[in-house]
Amino acid sequence: MRDRLAIITATLAGAFMALQYFITLPIANSAYRAILSWMQIIAAFAIVVGVFGVIRLHLERIGRKRAGWLYSVTLLAGVLVMTILGFAGGIDRGTSFQWVFDHWQAPMQSTVFSLLAFYIASAAYRGFRARSGESAILVMAAIIVMLGRVPLGEWLSPILPNVSDWILNVPALAAKRAILIGIGLGMVATSLKVIAGLERTYLGGR
């Protein structure tokens, strides 16, 4: 019964949101605006559910001393500290919450992201091999694009940026377009299957 109710809701909401685009009646517009508001409210509750889900998962991991449980302790400490700071002092400019975000979270996340440069350099030396004709083309393309996208490449040769742009705008873009068209068709097909009640994985795999 619960599944049927969810499927009926998804079918009606999906069909309405698809059809209202073509209906100019004021009542359709009011319903559309109401649904948009509901979506925001549901999303806000979903965040709360998500946070509790994460807390429960990590408490379980700590309780069973699973591999990496110390990371879970760090995560929960972060959740607790930020929640206390947020509720106690607010989240505006100049608050402790904001200070932790600016001076801890942002630099730490940026640092982790920056580590990519080190790993890419290491991987480039150790693994990026021209073992066949195709991989040789890939290696050449990578070198040209890397140099063509920075001022040094322009300084080395004015042709490099043009060749780099051609690689990005012609062969790479052709592949990207194919992927985008595939994604678009897949989204339409999946949406139709949800509206028709054939796609039910959103019910949790039941």
Partner: peptide
């Protein structure tokens, strides 16, 4: 930032060639 990016891109290109 462009100076650092130029230098790192060039270094990675050199590393690819050296590795090969």
């Amino acid at each position: 930032g462009m100076d650092a990016q130029s230098a790192i891109h060039a270094l990675i290109a050199v590393l690819i060639v050296a590795g090969n």
